[in-house]
């Protein structure tokens, strides 16, 4: 039997029951998010589906959730491994009243909400890598893919796509991600209720999103900084064909990464991959 078939069998054995969406919905205490749930056993990508819904006029707060994704995506088309019934893959439609230039605040807000939810389920606090990856011990636990449609006047919609490795055993992860990824189960040694996790996460997202829309980004930015793992660390910013080295200082009021370069200049970074220099 090929290794991939063995992995599939083991995954099926370790996977829990399908999500009970009613259990999430019935006890959800959220004002804006989770107004409607669309649940799929398998889908190409929850973000792609949510975008199609938003294009057709779907309201803010609709959640698209799938047990597995055949074309789960990360940034720039990177594949997001999406095995069934162990993790969470979902997308939320937002229609924020923000100028397009401030929409990146949404993705930092989502990272804060994710970190706050994860703290309830983890033995150690998670770390945020700018702008929105969630790590523990340098390994990725959750990812956010934010897609937006806007014009010069304002934001039409934002699709907030989130993938969280929950009950995913390390030994069943594909080799190519095992060195770089982890899961709540791997860290806590406990299987957790995906419904309880998602309900809390939607509530935390709802609360943080309400803060941005209400009092602005400052409070979120300060909590983001409290999870920021690279402050004072030497990092490398990789752009398309340029590399900048320096010491990470935090974020500014727009969410841009502040970096002190080797010449002592404070630089403002709005693009690029950030990695910790050993």
């Amino acid at each position: 039997m090929p290794a991939s078939d063995l992995t599939a069998k083991s995954l099926a054995a370790s996977a829990g029951l399908p999500l009970d969406v009613d259990l999430i919905r019935d006890q959800l205490a959220a004002k804006r998010l989770g107004t409607q749930f669309r649940y799929f056993v398998a889908i190409d990508s929850t973000n792609s589906y949510a975008r199609r819904l938003a294009e057709q006029g779907a309201a803010e707060g609709e959640v698209v959730i799938a047990e597995s994704q055949t074309q789960g995506r990360g940034r720039l088309g990177r594949h997001w491994v999406s095995p069934p019934n162990v993790n969470l893959y979902f997308s939320i439609i937002l229609r924020p009243k923000l100028p397009p230039a401030e929409a990146p605040q949404i993705t930092l807000m989502a990272a804060v909400a994710l970190a706050e939810t994860l703290e309830w389920f983890l033995p150690v606090p998670p770390v945020i890598k700018w702008p929105n990856d969630i790590l523990v011990d340098g390994k990725k636990l959750a990812g956010i893919l934010t897609e937006m449609s806007c014009d010069a006047e304002g934001v039409d919609y934002v699709i907030l796509g989130i993938g969280v490795n929950l009950n995913y055993p390390l030994d069943l992860m594909p080799d190519e991600i095992r060195q770089r990824a982890t899961s709540v189960f791997a860290l806590s040694k406990k299987k957790i209720s995906r419904e309880a996790f998602l309900r809390r996460l939607i509530q935390d997202l709802d609360r943080c999103y309400g803060e941005i829309q209400g009092t602005g980004f400052a409070a979120i930015a300060s909590r983001w900084e409290s999870y920021f793992g690279l402050r004072g660390q030497r990092v490398r910013i990789e752009l398309l064909d340029q590399v900048v080295l320096g010491t990470a200082q935090g974020i500014d009021r727009d969410g841009a990464l502040l970096l002190e370069d080797d010449q002592g200049n404070l630089q403002r970074v709005i693009a690029g991959d950030v990695t910790l220099l050993e």
């Binding site: 940034r75 720039l76 397009p100 929409a103 990146p104 949404i106 993705t107 930092l108 702008p131 929105n132 956010i144 893919l145 934010t146 897609e147 937006m148 449609s149 806007c150 014009d151 934002v158 969410g255 841009a256 709005i270 693009a271």
Partner: peptide
């Protein structure tokens, strides 16, 4: 257009 990992479709 990508800014801070937010991908904006240009219509």
């Amino acid at each position: 257009i990508e800014v801070m990992k937010v991908f904006n479709s240009v219509r």
